[in-house]
Structure formats: C-alpha cells, structure tokens
Design a protein around this nucleic acid. Structure first.
Lengths: 226, 226
DNA sequence: CTGCGCTATTGATGATGGTCAAGCCGCTGC
DNA sequence: GCAGCGGCTTGACCATCATCAATAGCGCAG
C-alpha cells in the first residue's frame, strides 16, 4: 500500500527525513510501501539481507537478539515517528538483530536502493543519514550508561519519566506495550518489574493495568539520580 | 607533530580509513597532528565543540560520562588502531561524553573541516564514514546485549576471551589497562572484579599482576554462554 | 631504608535481583 | 457459566553484587 498524505506527514517529521527537502524525501519514498500489522509479526531476522529500512507510523517495533537457547534480549523498542534499520544498509548489509512488530502497528518500508543511489549523488542526503546514525549512537550510549550506573528501579523510574514527557506535577499515561516487554526493555525480569513498581508506590506511582499515574514527576526524576 | 610513515600505516588500517583510497585519506590527514601523552590527560569533555576526531595509534582512551556527584561511568575504551568521535562531528556538533587518554598513549587528531568538506564533494567518503558509524552501532548494541543478558562474571569472561583473540587452547596476555578500568569497562566494581577473577580460577584463569593466563580459551568461551 | 600514595585484595554485611513455583486476574470461546 | 489460557503478581529461597572498612603489595621520593 502506498503512504497516505497523513503517513507522509509523519515520515517527514522523523529525524532522518526532517533534514531532507521535499525532493530528497520523495526520491527516497519511491517504492515505499505501507503495511498494517494486525498481529505480532516478525519483520526480519538477524543476518537477513538488509534491503529495506523502516519508519514506524503507529505502534512499535522491538529489536532483539536471541541466544542459542532461544532466550531473547531486547535491544531497543522503536516507537511511532522513528526510523530504524537505516544503519544496517551500510556496513555489513545485513540486519544485526531481529525485529518484530507489535500487533496494531503500522510501518512503511523503504527500499535501500534509492537511498544508496541518493547518497552517491547528493551530499545533503549523506549528512542527513549521518546525523540520523549519530542520534542512534547517542541513544545507545545513554542506554549503556543507564545499564551500568543505575539500579533497575532507577531505570524503571527513568522509563516512566520519559513516558510522562515534559510535564511537571502529575502525569497519567498508559504503558505503550505489555509489561513483559517493559521489563525486557529495562533489562530486568517481569517479576522484578512487578516488585519495582510496587516499591515505586511510595514515590507516588500508581499502576492499574497498563494505566500509570505519577503524582509527582519531579520526585521521580530526582529518584533517577539517586 | 606530523604523523610519521608508521603512524600513517596504522591510520590507513583503521576501519574508517581502510575504506578510502590514498587521495581521500591524505585529504583528511591535512592538518592532522600527532601527540604522545606521557600522563593521563583529558582530551575533551562532554559538551565541548566537536571540531576533531581521533585515531588511537598506541595505548588507549576511555570515553565516560559523569554524574552530578562526579561518579564516572565508562562507556567504552578505545584501543590502538581505532578511530573515535567521528560521529560527534555530525548531529549536535558536540562531544556527547568525556574522553581521557591513558598515560603512554599516542593519538592523532584530525580536523573536522576537511572531513565535512570531503563529505560534500565525495560520495565514497560518505559511505566510508557511514560504514564506520555502523560498526560503532554494532559494538554498542552488542554491549547492551551483554549488559542485559549476561552476569558480571560472564562479561568478564567475555572480556578475557576477546583479549585472548582467536587462539584456542592456552593464551597468555596482559591487561591493557588498570584493573579499576577493566571493572568499569564491564560494569562492576573493582572489588567484584577481584572476586570474579578469583572464581574464574576454577576455569583455568590465572592472574599475576596484569598478566593473565587462560589455560583453556574454549572453556571460557563456553562459560560466556552459560 | 622508610614512609607515602595508589591500587588491589580480602572480609563482613546487607540489599536485591533472579529463579522456581504457585496463585490470581481478565479474557476468550464453548 | 465455566474452563482454559496468557499475562501478571506474590512468595520463598538462593546467589551474588555493592558497600564499607581494613589490609596488603608496590612504586617512588626523599
């Protein structure tokens, strides 16, 4: 399916595309295809030939690695308005991780060929892609920092704060995906997530199902630091 | 100081430069300066204007973040034959982390200007830099995976295995930096590192000062997995 | 040689995350 | 309604990591 005008609006707002002008964006979108995913579905596996990259229009996608025994490690969860796998196209030309869409997601897949083509002829395009990869790099480094320096409960707090956004005072929102996934995202087990959420109640965090109420976002932010 | 022919040889073997031809490499190296660091020394701080990137010719450099209280979190340690901070030049144009060279290191600093210039006019350059950033991305993702999926002792084992290289059977080598740094590198405290090393003795790992003897690299590799 | 400073180790202790196992809740389909 | 299922929670237990504190080794300067 071709992108609707609404889809294009979202695409143009992604970090990658927002650095491009109209003509550059349209060149990339030639051959782009949009798809809705009613159910969970494997998008690609690690080692697959990387001939597409993606923009999440709705819902989310999780990137993960699998151990030999089949245990999965979540590397990253990509939410709406972000592109991913653009990096895999260069370098090895293979996806380094597995990707699975959550049910209800909507993605656009973009061919690698026009991108590689544009890179050859258009230096502005190169800068845009480089900037996009740098964003990734920053995110990953920040993630490493959190994993090394913060206790699981603090990482959870950080996760909630980032969901709450810029609000100060009270925030109410819903978890963007199943708790099992949230736990994996933070790097703990589902059991620990339950307990961590219970402990955060003292700091004014209530959870009912996937609805979270943070009574004092500032207090949570402070807790993230120590 | 200008790069010696030996320096240039090392530079040309880095992932970034090996994708470039002679002329492209020389264009980048215009204005490059080599420096030996007798002592530890801060190279740049997070937030500094990113107007150079670096290649490690000898020794190593550690990239780290600082908390408000001054606690440091090691993000990565860069060894000889690798470039770093090339990503910081795009995107925000500021270094995202602090960098400190270890005593005895030798680095070459390369101006951002010729790189940005070359990117505009030379699409091959863009591909080389993109590939280099992708390598980074892979490393960082692998690191996240290890932090999430492996216990500290396993991470230590992995670290030793990666130092041992492709050998099978016995390997003897020296730790490339102080144990405190090794501990930070794998995300544990120095105390835990001591104990973890002691426990690895059962698997045939002996340490005397910074000399490590691994009697059966294969066994260690197996231990990394579980 | 001696003393200082830094790094590494060792010990004791407490907190907490993982694991295994059981129970609960909410949904779906019959 | 009820059974069954998946996801979530709870509990008990154990392993282990961080912390704090003390000690031991080592290099170096005087």
């Amino acid at each position: 399916m071709l992108p609707t005008p609404d889809d294009v609006t979202i695409i143009r707002r992604t970090p990658l595309f927002s650095a491009l002008d109209e003509a550059q964006a349209m060149a990339l979108l030639r051959g782009a295809r949009v798809r809705d995913y009613a159910d969970e579905s494997l998008l690609f596996s690690a080692g697959d030939r990387a001939d597409h990259f993606y923009v999440v229009l709705r819902g989310s996608v999780r990137l993960f690695a699998l151990s030999e025994e089949g245990d999965e490690t979540i590397i990253e969860v990509i939410g709406a308005g972000n592109s991913f796998a653009e990096g895999a196209i260069f370098g090895a030309g293979r996806y380094p991780v597995h990707a699975e869409v959550f049910s209800g997601a909507r993605l656009v897949s973009i061919n690698a060929a026009p991108l590689l083509e544009a890179l050859r002829s258009d230096s502005g395009m190169a800068m845009a892609v480089l900037a996009s990869l740098c964003r990734w790099q920053l995110n990953l480094m920040a993630e490493i920092r959190r994993l090394k320096a913060q206790a699981p409960a603090q990482r959870l707090a950080w996760f909630l704060v980032s969901l709450a956004g810029d609000v100060s005072g009270e925030a109410v929102f819903r978890l963007p995906f199943r708790k099992t996934i949230v736990a994996g995202r933070i790097g703990i087990t589902p059991e620990s997530l339950s307990r961590a959420l219970a402990r955060l109640a003292e700091l004014g965090v209530e959870t009912k199902g996937d609805i979270v109420t943070v009574h004092d976002v500032e207090a949570l932010r402070a807790f993230c630091r120590g």
